[in-house]
């Protein structure tokens, strides 16, 4: 069955029903932290495929570079030197969008169609619809989306939806030399991950496991972790991520009230217009506005 359907199942700030004629399998990118050598080939492949380039930065006393996700760096390696029962371990985690089944970013987004979820599970930003409000950033439990200073829109990993749409794996999975990043159906990836966990357990990692957190409905980027009981040691990977209460509230119970408030505001403005006439913008304010531009 095809993995590459671009049928949209969810669309931010819209109530149009989703197509349901075709069925797509869910995809997963599995990142096996225990096989990662931190070579950053995935970072390079991501920049190559997506035509993004960060500035040439500086060294901050660690090997991480760029230091954080940006509108140009949709994935970065996080290096953590951790003392465990086995002695020193150097845990290297590829950070980027987790493509949550229940995406906080999409829920928080007020711009119609700026964030979509395809039927294969990929959560994608449609930047042309993005209004740059940054609510998705607040809504993300993994702190992933980044606002561009250049165009005021938010960017993150697309799971190479454009590649997946034509039957290719994401660029990072394609390039990973050790097979630490693999891509396929969620079922296949869970099966593969279980094999990896068994291998790790045989090598003494008693708490090895799969990271597929339920708080966000599971993710379409999963990790194999040597210490699945302590995701926090992997550069602060959240143990029980969930969509923030504010977003849930905003999109849940509060939404009708908010909509009412908004409508009331519009009504008030209209009332103001018909009773008092249009708002005059002073020349000073207009000049300021132009200068800013």
């Amino acid at each position: 069955m095809a993995l590459q359907s671009l049928d949209i199942t969810r669309r931010s700030a819209t109530t149009t029903p989703s197509p349901s004629q075709r069925k797509t399998q869910e995809v997963v990118k599995l990142i096996d932290v225990s096989k990662c050598i931190g070579c950053k080939a995935c970072q390079a492949a991501c920049m190559e495929w997506n035509d993004t380039r960060d500035k040439i930065g500086t060294n901050h006393g660690v090997l991480d570079n760029p230091m954080d996700l940006t509108a140009n760096s949709w994935t970065v390696m996080r290096y953590s030197e951790v003392e465990t029962g086995r002695g020193l371990e150097w845990l290297i985690r590829k950070d980027g969008c987790m493509h949550c089944a229940d995406p906080g970013c999409l829920k928080a987004c007020p711009a119609p169609g700026a964030i979509v979820q395809y039927s294969n599970g990929i959560v994608d930003f449609q930047e042309e619809n993005c209004i740059g409000c940054g609510y998705c950033i607040t809504g993300c439990p993994f702190n992933i989306p980044r606002l561009s200073g250049k165009d005021g829109k938010v960017y993150k990993c697309t799971l190479c939806s454009d590649r997946v749409a034509v039957g290719l794996e994401p660029a990072c999975a394609k390039t990973c030399p050790t097979g630490a990043i693999v891509f396929g159906t969620k079922d296949d990836m869970i099966h593969h991950a279980e094999g990896r966990v068994a291998d790790l357990k045989s090598r003494g990692f008693a708490e090895a496991g799969i990271y597929d957190p339920l708080g966000v409905g599971g993710t379409h980027v999963m990790y194999v972790l040597q210490h699945a009981d302590k995701p926090g040691i992997y550069h602060g990977l959240p143990k029980d991520p969930s969509v923030s209460a504010m977003v849930t509230l905003w999109k849940g119970a509060v939404k009708p009230i908010a909509s009412f408030a908004l409508a009331a505001g519009v009504f008030g403005a209209f009332f103001h217009y018909v009773t008092k006439g249009p708002n005059e913008v002073s020349e000073e304010i207009e000049k300021e506005f132009k200068d800013e531009k």
Partner: peptide, 20 residues
């Protein structure tokens, strides 16, 4: 790993990955 000898400091991506 980010660099190859004294060549890749001439390429942008390698220089982004380990700049200094």
């Amino acid at each position: 790993t980010e660099h190859f000898h004294f060549w890749t400091k001439h390429t942008r991506i390698s220089s982004i990955l380990q700049p200094e």
